[in-house]
Amino acid sequence: MALAARCHYGAPALEVMKEIAVIWRGELLHALKTGRFWVLLVLFMMFTGMAEGCIGLLTKQASTSVNTQIDSQLKKASGDEEVDPETREQVKSKIKEQTEEGKKQIIKQLFAEGDDALTDALLAMPFVLLAVFKLGLRFLPFFAALIGFDQLSSEIGNRSVRYLVARARRSSLLLGKYAVQLTLLALLTLASTLFMVALSLAFSTDVALTALPLLTLKLWLCAWVLSVAYMGLTTLCSSLFRQPALSLFLNIIFLFVIWCLDFVGSLFRVPNAAVTDELIAAARPESFLAYLRYSSVWHYADDLMHPHWQRFLPAAFAHLGFAVIFLGLGYLVLRKRDL
């Protein structure tokens, strides 16, 4: 029998890695050439720009109102007389202190769940950047769903996946597609993080330029680790249906369930746990429902920005763990299903 080409096979694991690499390279290059990636990039930038613009303007207005407050307090204190510079400075620093304390409390309650170390770390960031980045992180799971919902379902739907499964293992197909989407999301988050940091310079006066590269890297890594888990969920949802719209719908439902699990869990205190000095946490009733939060990947997101590795690493591994679970389930579905 005449055979022009024969394939040589190494160890299966190596074969799988090679297949994943080929799928990743081929489909990533193709994706970068298509309009979809660039449209998403523009959308990311628009979202970042609009969010940062709004929050930046709000903080500028707040800053202006603080200055107005300083002037009015000085006028009140002095009547019609000229205020000496020393008094002016005293009033200024007092109001600034109060503002900083207010800001600290906002960050502590909104972004740090009452953790002092995390609060201090976040305080070092420009407030506009922190607020927009945190907002971006909250929406990142939806972006992951929008980017990757049809990665498998569209190809299963129109059966073009058959051309691939004749050449590659289903596991390689799943992981290759996942790697492509994750890379695209990493590129998009890198671009938007850079844009975010650049814009924050326009709205903040107290930015240490030397700290910016490391801060940018930290923020991007944080977004990337978060993407690892949520893109895994998107890949799982995409392997379940032939219709991309159904995959997207289920993905959003899952995101809602994940958020609900964390929300319900956070309403309660873990039984017999040490009571913190945080008032809100201490006021929560004890219940086993508090354990629900640990089943939600959402619960671990805040610690990705924690300055202590004892908190950061478990959060990062939790995200990786959830990614492995989602991808494992996705593989089971794809392995068993008819294509």
């Binding site: 394939c7 799988v16 293992r169």
Partner: peptide
Amino acid sequence: PGALKGKVGVLPQDA
């Protein structure tokens, strides 16, 4: 998985 790689060429009907 991977059993047919390099052994089979396929023309699916409606892919």
